[in-house]
Design a protein around this nucleic acid. Structure first.
Lengths: 249, 249
DNA sequence: AAAATAATTGCAAAAAACTGCAAAGACAAA
DNA sequence: TTTGTCTTTGCAGTTTTTTGCAATTATTTT
């Protein structure tokens, strides 16, 4: 087998599985490990993949990539939170749910903006307490050890007694067909209650989460009134969402 | 499994749960703790997460809220909290109110003690969330800006729906004749509700507060079942209280 | 203060990478 | 076809990296 052919096979495998073991490929193609090692070295130099000890991984699967992604993600989240903030007016009664993007929103709220703000998140509550103008209410309930947010029947019950001008929520996954979905069922139940109690529900989601889904459904995409991503509302990636009855920001 | 793959798994878990235990990850991936420890060390050096004793936490997940800012009389408070802890048994449903002494109690609760614990204090809640065996519930309500505890009708309403085996409260002032008093009316109202909902109410108070009083009354001294100070129950200073129908500890 | 957990260190076995080399193969010019 | 040159490949020996274990030390918990 020619070198070029082997290279093609290797790249194929990497793209298919995101990672390969040199030993697997050597056996599969039927050449020595040394040869494959040299092939992978070349492909690495050509920036076709990243060579690691024992194998190779697809570009974009490296930790450098995730590191950069996270740095950008924070900027994106601030961008999203800034747009969300523009919706809030003096005198509003709002709810801010948990999650890193929602926490950014809480951080961005100006000291003197006079609003009433409910939250289910300990972190958001602590942040809001530093804002002079904000009247802070915590929705009690069982606290999730992981996310430090209120869940359970108690929280839901309280939520349903209140009407929010706006509620700001994140989600684990969004998909145009599957709607908002989560990894965790209890989280879903709380979010359902939030949506029910809100005049307008605003979804804060980085574009990375678009077109992904998981086990438990919070709601259809149309149950959301406004969706905010870090992208421009005219962005190609949002094309499908523009056809829906939601406001993009 | 390639090292890079393990790294990805670890980062994923940290992002999902905010914190991980090395032992959990080691078991999940099926390698020794040493290997995971080395992985986490590298990821920490890469600023992908923060390594802590026994595990790792997501960047930006540190708690300043429960740090001891007020080390005044800390020794005494720990002594009080230790005595209070001795009252709690497996399976109990208790309430821990706010204040530095109550926070000490929360800190002292052993990891594996299995109890259900309610609280009105953000700091106490955050502390309790670190305890494996504790089911944590937060009593929602309006949050006081300075004390970071729930107050208001909402909190009171929730409290009255529950029965606690023990509730642990502090007070601004105690006097044998005037009972428990406070500077703040809303705090009094919440404490009244707590006392009403508790089979046994335990007062945690440093002796310095004895024989002092203020404007708003929570209850008579007899409404308290147990009073804990840093002093020996036989101490002269507690002579008056011994004549009352309260247990001293 | 004692017990339980976790971190560190040094070490050894295993796996992988590197090095130099020689045989095999590719290819152009004679 | 043959020859000479250059590249590719596999092999053997050496070095490096990874990993798990055991003994020690440090930290946390009770």
């Amino acid at each position: 087998m020619l070198k070029e052919e082997r290279h093609r096979v290797i790249i194929n495998e990497v793209e298919l599985h995101n990672r390969i073991l040199l030993s697997d490929i050597a056996e599969q193609i039927g050449v020595s490990m040394d040869t494959i090692r040299r092939d992978v070295k070349e492909l690495d130099a050509d920036k076709q993949l990243k060579k690691v000890h024992g194998g190779a991984i697809a570009l974009g699967f490296t930790n450098y990539a995730t590191e950069n992604k996270n740095i950008y993600a924070l900027e994106d989240k601030i961008k999203i939170a800034t747009k969300a903030l523009s919706l809030i007016n003096t005198g509003n009664t709002i709810l801010i749910h948990g999650g890193t993007t929602c926490l950014e929103l809480a951080k961005l709220i100006p000291n003197k903006l006079e609003i009433t703000c409910f939250t289910t998140s300990l972190a958001v509550a602590l942040e809001l307490l530093t804002k002079k103008g904000v009247d802070v209410f915590f929705i009690g309930g069982r606290l999730s050890k992981d996310s430090q947010i209120s869940i359970g029947a108690n929280a839901i019950h309280q939520l349903l007694d209140i009407t929010f001008d706006y509620s700001f929520i994140g989600t684990g996954y969004v998909d145009i067909n599957y709607g908002l979905t989560e990894f965790d069922l209890e989280s879903v139940q709380v979010k359902k209650a939030i949506i029910k109690s809100s005049k307008k529900t605003v979804l804060l989601s980085i574009s990375e989460k678009l077109n992904s889904k998981h086990r438990y459904k919070t709601c259809e995409i149309n149950a959301i009134n406004t969706m905010i991503t870090e992208l421009d509302p005219d962005d190609m990636l949002l094309e499908n969402f523009r056809k829906q009855d939601i406001r993009l920001l």
